[in-house]
Amino acid sequence: MRYAMAIDTKKCVGCADCVVACQTENMVPIGYCRDWIVEVTDGTYPQLEIEIRSERCNHCDNSPCVRCCPTGASHYVEGGIVKVTQHKCIGCGACIASCPYDARYSHPDGYVDKCTFCDHRIKLGEQPACVAVCPTKCMYFGDLDDPNSEVSKVLKKRKYKSLIPEAGTRPHVFYLI
C-alpha cells in the first residue's frame, strides 16, 4: 500500500476550492492552510504559459521531518502517510525547518499540523476532502501499489513531475504536465 496523489496542472484552474474544503473538513483555523495554490506565469505578452499547482505535504518516502522529530510525534502510518501525533508534539519547530516544501505550520494550539491525506476519510472509503471537492476533477488519489487505482492509471498515461526531486525526499504528490 502506497498512497499518492496526482494533480493535473492542465486542468487545475487555481480556484482554491481544495484549500477551503481542507480548512472546513480538517478544522484548519482561519489564517492557516494545509494546502495552497502556486501559479507560475512564464513568457511575454502574448506568448505566455501558466502552470497552476495545488500544493500540500508530499508525504515523502524519505522525510526529513520524520527524521528530525525528537519525540516521534512525526511518523509514518500505513500507506506511507506522514502524520503528526498532536499529544506527542512539543512544538519545537524542527520538522517545519526541515521541510523543503514548507508544508507544515505551527497550529495556534501549539502543535504542528499538516496535510494528512485525509486518512480519516480514506479509512471510510472516501476521497480526501480536497480531491472530492475539486470542480475540475484534476486531482487523483489512490494506492500506487494497485495498478488499477486512479493515480496509477493516470501516472502511466501522462507525463509528470514532482517538486524539488533534488532534495532527495522522494515526494508522493505528482504533477501531471
Binding site: 480556484c15 474544503a21 471537492v133 475539486c134 470542480p135
Partner: peptide, 8 residues
C-alpha cells in the same frame, strides 16, 4: 462538487 465560494 461545490465551487470554492459554495464550500466557503
Amino acid at each position: 462538487r461545490l465551487c470554492p465560494r459554495g464550500t466557503g
